[in-house]
Design a protein around this nucleic acid. Structure first.
Lengths: 191, 191
DNA sequence: GTCTATATGGAGATAGAC
DNA sequence: GTCTATCTCCATATAGAC
């Protein structure tokens, strides 16, 4: 194993630790020391991989976009459009326990960074934008009326479910809303 | 005007300033100095009215609950149940500009305080709980099926609309979702 | 009751040894 | 490339004069 190899590993380890800790504690309450501890890296050593705290969150978001894109491409390969949208909703259903505890990692970061300057706010909104545009594309393929409105509602419902489920610490609330959403999806497509 | 009178005024001024600044900047990014400046009060002078930053946000939430309750009682006096729910949705419609800029003051605080200890998280969730329970009561009066589920969806939709509208800085998105919600409301009640 | 001055603590970030 | 030691800044909170 080369030096460079180890370095990449450590970068990955730090990034995964950062993602986990920021999800649990939120951006503002997370210190770089918290992340260092989680990744078993000395405090100051972080600055070799993340120039600033902001660049760290940038990398989290970039990784999240890549992971989302990967899943969407997978669904586009092996499912019909309606099942793709249901698969998307099922992510929230499956993550209901963790999101009820810590909120949706995408949405909670949007709110936290929305006040941290236009650049950071715009970055945080990108995964949400990806979700909306990809959903709109699926609705369009399905021939649904108002695909843009459908996609908008879908993303809003998922985010609202996560926020309220988190506020009440109630994973059941998230599950119930995903069920309602899937019923709504099938009705919408039937027309 | 007595001394006590002036003191109450200053307390009110500080509380209103705190509410406005925390809405604009979020809890974590707001310093007590920001609030003092907004209220034209010297920095240290805050601590006579707010023991700690946490007690300040407690008072904001308490005031918000009182205001919500006041409005709900007013609607219960002079509107039929369906119009009460529409009036609730219209609050978000009317605040779409400001919420697209700064997020829903209730929901964004829920996410921010959800990691700040169980006590603070529970406090932040109370306005949301009030909204859900009051809405459920209206659905029940209307004889709608699953009033609890209806209320849950209503609150989630409003919060999701605010979060997404804020992320995209798009008041139109919030307005569109309130329109969809009102259509949904009338359909639900028709059954 | 009100304000000034200051203590305290902790965060992000850097310099430089290894 | 990596880690230690440290610097600097600034926010909360307090002590005490008025």
């Amino acid at each position: 194993m080369t030096r460079q190899q180890r370095s990449i590993d450590k970068h990955q380890r730090l990034l995964q630790a950062a993602e986990a800790v920021v999800h649990r504690q939120g951006y503002h309450l997370t210190t770089l020391a918290d992340i260092a501890r989680e990744a078993h890296v000395p405090v100051g050593g972080i600055y070799y991989y993340f120039r600033t705290k902001e660049s760290m969150v940038e990398q989290i978001i970039t990784a999240r976009m890549a992971e989302l894109t990967r899943r969407m491409e997978e669904w586009e390969r092996d499912r019909p459009p309606l099942a793709r949208l249901e698969a998307l909703v099922d992510i929230w259903r499956e993550d209901s326990e963790i999101d009820a505890r810590y909120g949706c990692p995408i949405g909670s970061l949007c709110y936290e960074l929305s006040r941290a300057g236009a650049r950071m706010a715009g970055l945080a909104a990108r995964p949400l934008l990806l979700l909306r545009e990809w959903s709109e594309k699926q609705f369009r393929i399905l021939g649904a009326a108002d695909p843009g409105g459908g996609a908008e509602h879908l993303v809003m419902a998922l985010q609202g479910a996560s926020l309220v489920g988190n506020a009440f610490h109630d994973p059941g609330a998230i599950v119930r809303e995903t069920d309602r959403l899937k019923t709504w999806l099938r009705q919408r497509v039937a027309n």
